[in-house]
Amino acid sequence: MKLDVMYFAWVRERIGVPRETVETEAATVADLVRELSAREGRYELAFSDLEALRVAVDQDLTDFDASITGAREVAFFPPMTGG
């Protein structure tokens, strides 16, 4: 399936693009992370410490074991610092 993957803050800087469309059969966020990390060093580096990352599937905050089957967009970012 085609999936829009988005990156924010230092995750975006490390990966080098704000968003991209990927072709994937990953069933969960964790599967997607493994797929991307296997591609290139910049992904492996950005995803090296999942404790330091948050993920949203279709704009809802969720966990790395969440399903992405049928999802349109997945976003990776550090803990939020609004206010």
């Binding site: 924010f8 803050a9 230092w10 949203a56 905050l61 976003a75 970012f77 550090p78 803990p79 939020m80 610092t81 609004g82 206010g83």
Partner: peptide, 26 residues
């Protein structure tokens, strides 16, 4: 509202000084 907005609304702050720039840590 302020407590939730700070860590559940997707905003990220970056501070830029003469020494460089850093993302604010939660």
């Amino acid at each position: 509202l302020m407590d939730y907005l700070k860590s559940r609304a997707p905003f990220w702050k970056k501070e830029v000084t003469a020494d460089g720039s850093d993302w604010v840590a939660a």
